[in-house]
């Protein structure tokens, strides 16, 4: 059963810890790391993924490919909290010699692939899903991508391939936060209707209206993972870039904006006491 209160608390914890990392390492992309927090919370704290912190490449794990690597700094406190690596490492993000950089790479326990360049995760995940099927494994491949990232053509090669080969052990989660680097994504490449696009490509489509409502996120992901209709699955999560930071939530340039160091403690307090 879903423990909503617990998951909400964990999401709050990740949001706060992500801001603290941003305070110490302003280089990290904070806005795009705040939009997928409930998704990661449901996957890990909700145990929708099988994972093993003691052996991150355990054969019995589900494979999570975080294609929008830069926008997953919230994974650092999550992985440390679950025991993938020592919590002290969080103090060294972006410091010389640290393995926790501005863009996560698979030297970090818990990361599978190189994510600094966009549009690679889904194709690699197709190969992983195909391999898992060939090995008759019941483990699944899950990819997290942003919406701006879907501008990359390689994704669409993979989208066609996954449907053709009926990869129903593959789920793509789109962190649809609707802001790219220079503007709202609809002003750059308008993806609407994204769900219709995936339907036309013969995928099973799930939509989460509020990607920050942990119950919706958890329940939709759970349903999608259990669905095996001989089709790959996409979960389109409507999220807010910079969620929790009012000035970022509405700003077309939120991707490249930092939160002022002096404002962070106040924001942390607000988040702590928010509903």
């Amino acid at each position: 059963m879903i423990d909503t209160a617990y998951l909400k608390q964990q999401a709050k914890f990740l949001r706060i810890e992500t801001l603290k990392i941003h305070k110490a390492a302003p280089e990290v992309r904070v806005a795009s790391s705040l939009s997928p927090i409930e998704i990661f919370t449901a996957l890990f704290y909700g145990k929708l993924l099988r994972y093993n912190p003691k052996n991150p490449r355990d054969e019995n794990r589900d494979r999570l490919i975080i294609s929008k690597g830069h926008g997953s700094i919230c994974m650092y406190p999550l992985l440390a909290d679950l025991g993938f690596f020592d919590k002290d490492e969080l103090k060294r993000v972006c410091k010389s010699g640290s393995f926790l950089g501005g863009i996560p790479d698979p030297i970090i326990p818990g990361y599978e692939t190189v994510n600094g360049s966009l549009g690679h995760g889904l194709g690699v995940a197709c190969g992983i899903a195909l391999a898992l099927k060939t090995k008759k494994s019941d483990k699944k491949a899950v990819v997290l991508t942003g919406d701006g990232e879907l501008n990359e053509g390689a994704n669409w090669e993979a989208i066609m391939c996954a449907a053709q080969h009926k990869l129903d052990n593959l789920t793509l989660i789109v962190d649809y936060n609707k802001v790219s680097m220079l503007d709202f994504s609809k002003n750059i490449i308008d993806l609407n209707s994204l769900s219709e696009k995936f339907k036309a490509f013969n995928w099973d489509v799930y939509e989460i209206e509020d990607g920050h409502d942990i119950e919706q996120v958890y329940n939709t992901l759970k349903t999608a993972f259990s669905d095996q209709q001989q089709k790959p699955k996409v979960v389109i999560a409507h999220t807010v870039k910079g969620k929790g930071i009012p000035f970022l939530e509405t700003h077309p340039l939120s991707h490249i904006l930092s939160v002022k160091e002096g404002d962070i403690d106040g924001l942390v307090e607000e988040i702590k006491h928010a509903d």
Partner: peptide, 26 residues
């Protein structure tokens, strides 16, 4: 047939799919 796949005229995906397979030990 279980160890052959034609990804179509799509070399980017050719590489990525091959990488996924190789990561899984093939």
């Amino acid at each position: 047939p279980d160890r052959f796949i034609n990804v179509g005229i799509a070399e980017q995906n050719l590489i990525n799919v091959s990488v996924g397979l190789a990561l899984e030990g093939f």
